[in-house]
Structures are given as structure tokens and as C-alpha cells.
């Protein structure tokens, strides 16, 4: 009986599997093909254009000249350095998002209200954020007036007008806006974790920090990797909007807030150097690709989200 059972189970298991295999080989094609062709065409054509332009100058073959010019351009190096400095914000974002998510998870009372409040900045359009903070952070703006009113006038500064502070001010605004995404992400995962594990830990005498350090963080690890990579990509290639809105597309004062995307935008649309914009884009694309590939490799090592 057991043999027969095994055999029949095997038969039952094998037949549908082979059928399913056939289905997955061809059945999805009519549904996926149009989307795949569209995506591949758009993506492929863009890549083709990008590479083509980056290797030419006004229609003639230029070899790697454009890459040499871009890489030797002090402005590009400044822009990359700023992107790299913004990457330092990622650990801060992670720590803030994790801490707030855990606090909310532990508090429970008023969870919805807090969650909505903390997520609110994330749904605000960046131009709105830029304009509001642009006003708030003027030298004679509201923030400095508040400092003055509470006797902290010494802290007042030209937040966006001082070249030594502008990038960090912008980083703080990005943290304020982006942290909500992390909180919601971590909170959603925390809520879905089995409560028995936490209860068992508490019964074993684990305190707040020990519980979260030894249980929560390891269980959130795949998500943490995802969040780090996602935010790293944001810092490398998604901060253009903030810089553009808050500095009127200048990246100022001086070059203190120029980032790689702004460099590309200005090269392409202001300075009429599409070939340099393309070369810089290829470099940025490569940097982002490394981050994404790195993420997938890490993810493979750590297991997927559900595991």
C-alpha cells in the first residue's frame, strides 16, 4: 500500500507538473509577448540611443572621447562626490525607519494615526516639498524665526544659501520625505511576523532591545537589504527633483548641490552637449546596475522576502 500510494502520488504529482511545464513554456506567451516587446523595444531603443550618442560627437565616431571628457570634468566629479555623500544618508534613513517602525509596532495604540502622519511626507509631491522647504529655510524664513523666538538664534543659518550647508540641508529634507516609505515597509512586515516568537522571547526574559536585536532585525534582513538598495538607488539617481526644485535647476549655491542627474540634465538640455549627457548617463546607468545586481546577489544569499 505504501508503495502503491507513493507510486500513485508520484504519478499524480508528475502528470500535472509536466502539463504545467508545457503551460509555462508557451501558454503565457500571448499574454506576455506584447508587454515584453514594448518594454524591450523602449528599453532597448533607449539603450541603443544612449550608447550611440555617448560614442559620437555631432554624428561622427568619437570613441571614448566623451567618457574621457566627462570623467575629467571637475563638475562631474563634484556631482558624483555629492551623490556619494548622499549615500551616507542611507544608514540614517534605515536606522530612523527601523526605529520608528519598531516603536509603532510596540505602541499599537493610535497606530493608524501615527502611521498616516509619518507616511504623509512620502505622498507629498516633491515640487510641493521643495517650495515649502525653500520658504521655510530661507535666512529670514520661519525656521530661523522660531530659533530666534525660543532663544536659539545662534542656530540660525542660511540653510540653503550657504554652500557648506546646502547639501546636508537637502539630505535632511530627503530623509524627512523618504523615511515614511521605510516605516510602512518595515511595519507591514513586523505586523505579519508570527507573534509566538516575540511572546516566547519575552517569556524567556528578553527585553526590548534584545528582542528586536536578536529576533526582529534578523527576520527583517531581506527587507532591510531591499530598503538599503532602494534608497541607495534613490540617492544615486532619484534626487534630481529635490535639487531642481530647491535650487531652480542650478545646483547652487556655487556647485554645492550639483548631483549626477542634474549634470546630465544640464548637459543635455541647457548646454546642448547631448553626447556628454549620454556618456554621463551610461556611467550613472552602470553605477545603478551595480547596485541592483549587488542587491540580487545579496538577496540570493539571504533568501527571498517570504522565507
Amino acid at each position: 500500500m505504501p508503495v502503491a500510494t507513493t507510486a500513485s502520488a508520484s504519478t499524480v504529482a508528475t502528470k500535472p507538473r509536466s502539463k504545467r511545464k508545457r503551460d509555462t513554456s508557451w501558454g503565457f506567451l500571448p499574454w506576455v509577448a506584447p508587454a515584453a516587446v514594448t518594454i524591450l523595444f523602449v528599453f532597448g531603443y533607449s539603450l541603443y540611443q544612449l550608447f550611440t550618442q555617448s560614442l559620437q560627437y555631432q554624428g561622427t565616431w568619437a570613441g571614448l572621447d566623451n567618457f574621457k571628457i566627462v570623467l575629467s570634468d571637475p563638475l562631474f566629479r563634484t556631482a558624483i562626490a555629492h551623490n556619494a555623500l548622499l549615500l551616507l544618508v542611507v544608514p540614517i534613513l534605515l536606522a530612523l525607519a527601523m526605529s520608528l517602525a519598531i516603536l509603532l509596532f510596540e505602541t499599537r495604540r493610535g497606530l493608524r494615526g501615527y502611521r498616516a502622519t509619518l507616511f504623509f511626507p512620502y505622498i507629498l509631491p516633491i515640487p510641493v516639498v521643495g517650495v515649502v522647504f525653500g520658504q521655510l529655510l530661507q535666512f529670514h524664513g520661519a525656521l530661523n524665526k522660531v530659533f530666534g523666538a525660543v532663544g536659539l538664534g545662534g542656530l540660525a543659518s542660511d540653510w540653503l544659501g550657504d554652500p557648506s550647508r546646502a547639501l546636508w540641508t537637502m539630505a535632511a529634507i530627503i530623509v524627512w520625505k523618504e523615511v515614511g516609505f521605510g516605516i510602512i515597509l518595515f511595519l507591514a512586515r513586523l505586523i505579519s511576523l508570527p507573534t509566538e516568537v516575540f511572546e516566547a522571547a519575552r517569556l524567556d526574559g528578553a527585553g526590548f532591545f534584545r528582542t528586536h536585536l536578536r529576533i526582529t532585525i534578523p527576520m527583517l534582513r531581506p527587507l532591510i537589504f531591499f530598503y538599503i538598495v532602494n534608497e541607495a538607488i534613490v540617492m544615486v539617481s532619484w534626487v534630481f527633483n529635490y535639487v531642481y526644485v530647491m535650487t531652480n535647476g542650478q545646483g547652487g549655491p556655487g556647485t554645492s548641490t550639483v548631483v549626477s542627474e542634474l549634470y546630465i540634465y544640464r548637459a543635455a538640455f541647457q548646454d546642448q552637449h547631448p553626447e556628454l549627457a549620454a556618456a554621463a548617463s551610461v556611467l550613472l546607468f552602470a553605477a545603478t546596475l551595480i547596485l541592483v545586481v549587488g542587491f540580487f546577489r545579496l538577496q540570493r544569499g539571504e533568501g527571498t522576502f517570504g522565507e
Binding site: Y48, F51, T52, L55, Q56, Q58, G59, T60
Partner: peptide, 13 residues
């Protein structure tokens, strides 16, 4: 990619 990019030049100036 390099070959295509290289071959597709259309000298304009």
C-alpha cells in the same frame, strides 16, 4: 553595442 553605435554615425558637421 559598440559596433552598432560606431557604424551608425551620420556625419552632420
Amino acid at each position: 553595442a559598440l559596433a552598432i553605435a560606431g557604424c551608425s554615425s551620420s556625419a552632420s558637421q
